[in-house]
Nucleic acid binder design. Structure first.
Length: 120
DNA sequence: GTTTTGACGGCGG
DNA sequence: TCCGCCGCCAAAA
């Protein structure tokens, strides 16, 4: 079996893939659109990741609040029901946020390309 | 079927 | 270092 199986039957389309990866972000960690896009093989499609998450509001199992942009900025906070819901959720996980930015982002960054390995 | 949009990222100025 | 323009590409209009 391959070590990494980013695409399985439950991840048939791009959106599904995004949801899958995002759902794997550990509690208390954050990831980025670009990293997820790269993991999915389309590094240049970071914007699509955001778009996918935009449609993920129906999926409660997708922790979209753990996805920020490359510098740790909460670029998607405006898409949550409450204006600072994203920040609140992050803080509930022990992630400190200041000025719409994740403090110590480098340390909290979870890179699926490296850390998302799961045994099949 | 074509144009616009967008929760990004890289590169140049 | 900071700011702005440009490329990407799937979905919505």
């Amino acid at each position: 079996m391959s070590l990494i199986t980013p695409i399985s039957k439950e991840n048939k389309d791009f959106f599904e893939k995004v949801y899958f990866v995002v759902s794997k972000i550990p509690w208390g960690r954050v990831s980025t659109y670009g990293a997820i896009a790269q993991f999915l093989g389309t590094k240049k499609s970071a914007r699509m990741v955001g778009w996918a998450l935009n449609a993920s509001h129906i999926r409660i199992d997708v922790p979209a609040h753990r996805v920020v942009n490359r510098i740790g900025l909460l670029s998607g906070k405006n898409h949550f029901s409450s204006n600072n819901e994203m920040e609140i959720k992050l803080k509930e996980e022990g992630i400190d946020v200041k000025n719409d930015k994740v403090v110590d982002f480098d340390n909290l960054f979870w890179n699926p390309n490296i850390e998302l390995t799961f045994e099949t």
